[in-house]
Structure formats: structure tokens, C-alpha cells
Design a protein around this nucleic acid. Sequence first.
DNA 1: CCATTCAATACCCTCAAAGTACCAATCGAT
DNA 2: ATCGATTGGTACTTTGAGGGTATTGAATGG
Lengths: 291, 291
Amino acid sequence: MDTRHMQYFLALAETLHFGRAAARMNMSQPPFSRQIAAIEKSLGVKLFERNSRNVALTPAGKHFLEDCRRVLAGFEAACRDVRLVASGMKGELRLAFMMHAAHGVVPSLVRRYAKSRPDIRLILEERIPTDIDEQLIEGRLDAAVTFGLVHAPHLRTALLARDRLQLIAPAGHPLARRDRVGPRDLQGERLIAAPASVAPTLRSAIGIYCATGGTVPDFVFEPRLQHTIIRLVAEGLGIGLIPQSLCTDLGDGIISRPLEDAPEFDVVLCAPVAAKNPAVSHLFEVAQGRE
Amino acid sequence: MDTRHMQYFLALAETLHFGRAAARMNMSQPPFSRQIAAIEKSLGVKLFERNSRNVALTPAGKHFLEDCRRVLAGFEAACRDVRLVASGMKGELRLAFMMHAAHGVVPSLVRRYAKSRPDIRLILEERIPTDIDEQLIEGRLDAAVTFGLVHAPHLRTALLARDRLQLIAPAGHPLARRDRVGPRDLQGERLIAAPASVAPTLRSAIGIYCATGGTVPDFVFEPRLQHTIIRLVAEGLGIGLIPQSLCTDLGDGIISRPLEDAPEFDVVLCAPVAAKNPAVSHLFEVAQGRE
DNA sequence: CCATTCAATACCCTCAAAGTACCAATCGAT
DNA sequence: ATCGATTGGTACTTTGAGGGTATTGAATGG
């Protein structure tokens, strides 16, 4: 038994006529009759009551007819769907993003993608930047929204937005009264920033920025989440340099100020150049506004 | 593509090793490799990333794997179920019964049958006796509970119960006071009975019973339903001779009395001797208490 | 650098299944 | 009753899908 035999059975069950059923299967009647007999023999079940004038389904045949229709429909759907998956029209896409991207570009990107690829199930996962790199290589992620990396030959990237560092400080802090703040002004301040192991791009940008003013940064806390930095600054435990995109709705007791010559960095969509998931390429098209 | 190809795919997707997958399919590795290549070609989709050391599923392959499991499970279930239907363990059974049988033997018969054949869907239909005969022959019914027929060579029967006619009369009727009633006592009474076209067995039993006393019956109403007879008798419009099994809970204003030498008749399970539905034979076993 | 492992290729062979021809049974019309 | 038309079954031939064996080529580890 296989699906071809089921199709033979289906043809006969629907026409109840060996000659016409054989014609529908593009074959002559004798081999068709033999196939029907072979099906009944292999199942050990009589599916048709027949004589030289009439063909009728047995009760078992009636039941089998319904099952065959279901099975064949599932079979054809599977063969059709695998092509859709291969062409990127259907399937899954695992997209990670670092937390601050969630406030900016990710929602719109996801909305536009889901609209043009409704049969792709988007699996969104929040990750810290270092995990993202690692998991992209391992193939546990298909794509990610993260900081632009200087050297990433194995990654394809598309610029989504540019962001820059901005100062946040407790409301009563001396720097909070200044219009602009430069690297020199950070000397002696208690800094709060994520550790290099979590956010290397931000951390090194802060380090380099301080160095341009000859300042040696004094990191007093190193939380993993940018939101934690904001909370600690609001409590008066220090100041922070965080992406501008996170400076909306900071809450009471905390202010933000632009930095002179603020370090900028790219927020990019990236995926392995040899992405196996065909759904990825269309994500890049959406990211680059080509759809 | 057919189910065998899906099984090849499944074997490789689960082992990720051509040699072992081929062994699982009881064949050697080279033709197995060719089959996998043929599957990919016919679908137009790469299902595996492979080199001489590693085999891995593509995203399309992963999706196809799940679909194949579903399809193959359905396929095997269909082949298994058709055998169950043919053996009478699964499927449908259309059982008709005349109305008064519903009060007696049908509920217990159905309960016992459903217990030992839980996968048979019982389709119960109430019919008047003449319709039952007709539809049994046409094959629109598999079996029926009805009166025992004197000549029915095309029907297989099993005795379920014996019933007898009993008199019902309005509470104030002269016959209501008598302990026993014979055929002679019916002379001149207004009789209510179903017409011969609806219940030939009952009707002819009444006729013969009257004849044994030399009585000419006077049928004043001929409703189709035994319950209607009871209602009309309760209204004082006449007397009736109905199956004893219907004489429980007659309600106020109506009494029943046994008849002398009451006509008896069999209540039987019957089905065409050449029953196509294999679920029928076990119904007879249940009816005859052999289960 | 060699041995080993594993998938792919080359070539052959077999049998499942299709085709052709014919037969048997049934029904309707003459 | 008989003949022809229709329909399913059987006998025999043929073909190609798919299996087997031997071998190659690429990758890995000692």
C-alpha cells in the first residue's frame, strides 16, 4: 500500500466503474483491476462488492474512502508546504534583539514582515549582545537586531538606525544643570554601565569617549540590563551613558543631557551570510525598505 | 513521491546517517542515497545539508519531517482501521426499532453492544414495522428490532422477547371491571388499532383473535402510533388491544386487562442474511446472550 | 601521510506494474 | 432464445523504477 494505491482506490470509489476509474488514472482497465485486487489482498479486506454489471462500496470501503481522502489531502499539503518553506513563504524565523532595540526599530520591522509573510511564525527572543553573536553562529538564531560590528565577515548586515550615547544623571546632580557635557566633565564621576562581557560595543564606546578627555572612568556598578542602570541612576547612585533611544520616559528624579561629540553606533539587522533559513532574505528586504 | 519515499526520508531525518538509515529500510546505502536524491529532485527542495562527514536537516527538511510523521501516522491508521471496520470492531451500525421495543429490549441490547464494541457508532432510528422490512432490503438499515415474521427467508432473526396483546379500556368501561376478557366479549365494541399498512402483525393478530370468538371487529380509528391509541382510549373513544409491554404507566382514566388465550408474538432482532456490515454478527451474539 | 569513514557514482539486474489480447458474465433488444 | 454491447477478470509480454555490488572521492584523525 502507498498513496498511489489510495488514489486508485479513490478513483474507483468515486466513479464506481473500472473503465472510467482507470481512464482517470491514465491507464488501461486490466492493470487497474489488478491493482484494486492487490489492494484488497494486501489489506485483507474486501472494499468493493462487484459483479460484471455493478460496483459498490462495502461498509469497510466507505470508511476507507473517508480516511483516504484525509490522508491524501495531508500528503499533498505536506509536499506543497515543503516547497513554500523552501521558498521562504512559510515556516519559522527565530529573531533575537537586544533589549533597547525593542523600543525602536524591532516593532515596526516585525509588523511589516508579518504582513507580507503571514505564514512565517516569528519567534522573537530578547538576548544580550554577546549571546546573539554566539547563537547566530551556532545556528540557534536565524537573525538578530544588534549593534553594528566592526569586523564580521561571516555576517550579512543591514543598517536599521543610528543611535548615540547620552548622559543620564539624578535630577539634583551638578551635570544635570549643564546644557552640554564633554568627556572631561566625567572625571571623578561614579559611572554605572553594563560590563564588557554583556555589551562590549557600549562599554568600549564609553571607555574610548572618556579617554578622549583624558578621563579614567570609575565604574561603581555593572548591571547587565540598561533598565537597571536607569533605576540605579534615579536612586542617586551614579551617572550613566546609555543609548539615546532609551531616554524617553525616564521617570521622575532623573534627567538626560546630550554629549559633546557623542559616540555613535549602528543598530543593524544581521544574519549569517550562509543563512540556511530562506525566510531570512526577505527580512533583509523589509529592513532595507525594499518592500 | 509516495509513502515509501516518506519513510526513507524519515529514516534519514531520524538517524542523520545514510548507512544506518538504509539498514533500517533493509537496503544497501547506494540505492538509498539515490532515493533521497530523487525525493529532493521531485520536490525541488533540498531537505538535507550534507557532505561526506555530516548530514543535517535544512529548515524545509525540519518542517517536512513533522508533516511526514503526521501523514504516515494517518496513513497507517487508515490501513489499520479498515481492517477493524471489516472485522466489525469499528464503524457504524444502523439499527432501527419499532416504537414499543424502545420500552423493552432495545435499551439493554444497545447498552451491552456499545460496551463490547465501543468503536462502533450506533445509529438508532425509530421506524414503523413496514418501513423496517423495506429499508432492511434496500440496505439503508443494518438491523432492526421488530416483530417476528412468519416467512422471511432473506432475514436472519434472533428472539429477543415474547409479547402478548392486552386489553386497554377507559376506566368506566364495563370490560374494565372483568378479571378476564375473551374474544367473544369484543363483539360490538369500538376498536382502535393501527392499520395493517403500518403494523401488519398486530393488526392481523387482532383480526384472528376476534375471529376465534366469531366477533367481527369494528375499527373506529386507525392511528399510526400505539401511543395515540392509548390517548384515544383514555379519552373514552373506544378500546384497544396493544402489546403488554406498553401497558406500564398508562396514566389515569385507563385500565388494562389480560386477554384469555392472548395472541402472542415474537420481538426479534433481524438483519439480512447477506448482511454486508460485519458489525451485525456481533449484535446477534449480544442478542442471544453469548456475550 | 595513511587509514578510515561516509556519501556519491557506475553499472547491472530483477520484478512490480503497465500494456495488449482475450475471456466470461450479464443485460437489453430483436 | 439469441446476438451484441458492456464490463470486469485472466494470460502473457514488456518496460522501467528501484534494488544490489563494486568503486570513487572527500573529509577526518592518528
